[in-house]
């Protein structure tokens, strides 16, 4: 607010009248009854607002509590231990007599098999493929948008990225399943139409906006003085972007990548629709793959409430929750480091 103290006061009063508050005091209130009532309302409102504000904390606590509650019988229930224990989920099992122990996820069979490893490998495999696609595209795009692009281009790219972020994952999954999978199969001559590459690219599309936005934020957070110093030394725009701005923003970009990885691990619908959903223990990207979230989504509808399979799916949920929280925390830590680094020097 510029201007002298006098006209700024008038401006404030004008501002109040503009929103419909009479600037003149209301009718007299000699006994202070109305004032007391207004103060009481204020106190009640304060407590009410503080109480409601705890909802977010309660939500996170309840999510942990009730996932753990449904997963807990894996440790204690003897009825469930007849079919599955935590040890059986982690170590390879002699599922078939006369064969060496191996890992398998086959919950619906005569001998239900609940090895975690195929699902975990599948989850990481698809998420890594998604990163391989999304990181170059999103980071390069962000560098171009924030360092080189003219204003007009920026005003097209940023809404476009927000538009991409607004496409529901089920629509992306549909597109990958119906269109991309077929073309990619023809293009690469793959044996399976639905495989880890197709699902990974679909996932990549979903996490491009996350990585792009966070990277762009990190790049714009680099103080202008860094660029000016580089220009003064005779560096070109490209040289400045590559050798000065990008390294300065690197913790923020790393945070973006980590967050993208966390998102890719937890994303459900795209993988559920486009991955082929076969729990094969292999790092081969051309095979169909089954991830943890897709397993929960596909199997939860048909299990007996409170049974071994139900419990195991909740164990998967707890595992997924812990993994994503860990990746989010790591990402947040890098964002803080970026702020410290840039805050201390600008």
């Amino acid at each position: 607010m510029e201007g002298g103290p006098g006209d700024s006061l008038q401006e404030r009063l004008g501002g109040l009248e503009a929103v419909g508050v009479p600037a003149v005091a209301a009718t007299p209130d000699p006994k202070g009854v109305r004032l007391r009532r207004r103060k009481a309302i204020d106190r009640v409102a304060r407590w009410f607002i503080a109480a409601i504000a705890c909802t977010a904390i309660a939500a996170v606590a309840l999510i942990f509590l009730f996932l753990a509650r449904e997963a807990f019988p894996i440790l204690t229930s003897s009825a469930i231990h007849e079919e599955v224990t935590l040890g059986k989920m982690i170590a390879p099992q002699p599922w078939r007599e006369g064969e060496p122990p191996y890992y398998a996820w086959q919950p619906v069979s005569k001998v239900p098999k609940y090895s975690l490893l195929p699902l975990l490998v599948g989850t990481f495999k698809v998420a890594i493929i998604a990163l391989l696609f999304a990181v170059p595209v999103a980071v390069l795009g962000a560098v171009f948008t924030s360092e080189l692009a003219p204003r007009k281009v920026r005003e097209v790219v940023k809404p476009a990225v927000e538009l991409l972020a607004g496409i529901p994952s089920v629509v992306l999954g549909f597109f990958v399943l119906m269109v991309l999978a077929t073309h990619l199969q023809d293009l690469l001559g793959l044996q399976y139409r639905l495989n880890a590459i197709v699902a990974g690219i679909g996932l990549g599309l979903a996490i491009v906006p996350v990585i792009f936005t966070l990277s762009e934020d990190a790049l714009t957070a680099v103080p202008q003085s860094y660029r000016e110093a580089a220009f003064a030394l005779g560096a070109s725009r490209a040289r400045t972007a590559w050798s000065v701005v990008l390294p300065a923003a690197s913790p923020g970009i790393f945070a973006a990548v980590v967050l993208g990885f966390g998102r890719a691990m937890g994303e459900t619908m795209i993988v559920l629709m486009a991955s082929g959903n076969a729990a094969i223990l292999s790092w081969d990207p051309v095979l169909p793959v089954r991830t943890v979230p897709a397993t929960i989504a596909a199997e939860m509808g048909e299990v007996v409430v409170g049974g071994p399979h139900w419990t195991v799916l909740f164990v998967l949920g707890v595992l997924l929750l812990l993994l994503t929280i860990a990746f989010n925390g790591l990402s947040g830590w890098y964002v803080r480091r970026l702020r410290q680094r840039l805050g201390g020097t600008s």
Partner: peptide, 15 residues
């Protein structure tokens, strides 16, 4: 809590 809530996978909300 808000930050973590935003990062929890949607399938976990289903559970």
């Amino acid at each position: 809590a808000v930050y973590n809530l935003a990062g929890i996978p949607s399938i976990v909300f289903g559970l």
